[in-house]
Amino acid sequence: MRVLVCVKRVPAPGARINVTPDGQAVDTAFLGFTMSPHEECAVEEAIRQVEQHGGEATVLTLGPTEADEQVRYAASLGVQKAMLLPTDGTDWDPQRTARAITEAIQQMETVDGPFDLILFGNESADSGGFQVGIRAAVALGRPMVNGIKFLTVTPADGMVEARRESDAGMEVYKLTMPVVIGVKEGINLPRYPTMKGRLASKKVRVDTFSPSAEIGRQKLVELYQAAEQASSTVILGKGPEAAGAVVDLLEELGLFNAGKVGA
């Protein structure tokens, strides 16, 4: 089975997200980088499917050359091949990103044959457009369902059962490969890289492809912080002695009534 997984390099902010003075990007001066948890799970899923059914997993990213770090991370976990679509470092709009990824997939499939399964994250961590995977699937003419938390592949008949959570329970989709799936965190528990994996990932060849993708019609003007309500925390106390004050508060908020609860 041939599996492709698409991930995006994003900053890993802590308690606050700061913006650069020109408002064009997140200030990453003191930040590390990562990918969305949904995409971490997509990488894990790609590896598991190949471990289970044989074949080969490839990771693809579009971003600055530093995104090499994210594809090598995927390689350290067990992905065999890597493809980087270099940009000038600016964040591409969703239409352009999807066009570029589609072009790259078509090129890779011409060389090495079609992918049976293409995995995306449900949404990217930073821009959260909820669409790049869907656009790529439509361009490729393949079925796509987003938000998937359970995936079972039966290579013998090419069937894929995908499930997504809804308010009422679980929706079950029955698809035939080749398929495109948007993965949601919770589908699996991603593994950590081993020392051996880390060393091996340094040697993985990262292919590059420069897409011609035309710019889309959504343009970022500026990023800014959401206004935050100033909060002044009331300290109810220290240690277990604070329990009385906490229960007083719960009573005051009407969440607990000494006369009713437990009665």
Binding site: S231, T233, V234, I235, P240, A242, A243, A258, A263
Partner: peptide, 26 residues
């Protein structure tokens, strides 16, 4: 710092103490 209320302490002691206080009052 962002919360409305806080208790500074070890949750392993504070949480059972809150439950005990609720049970005591009820």
């Amino acid at each position: 710092t962002r919360a409305d209320y806080a208790v500074i302490g070890d949750l392993h002691q504070v949480v059972p103490a809150i439950s005990a206080e609720i049970r005591r009052r009820t």
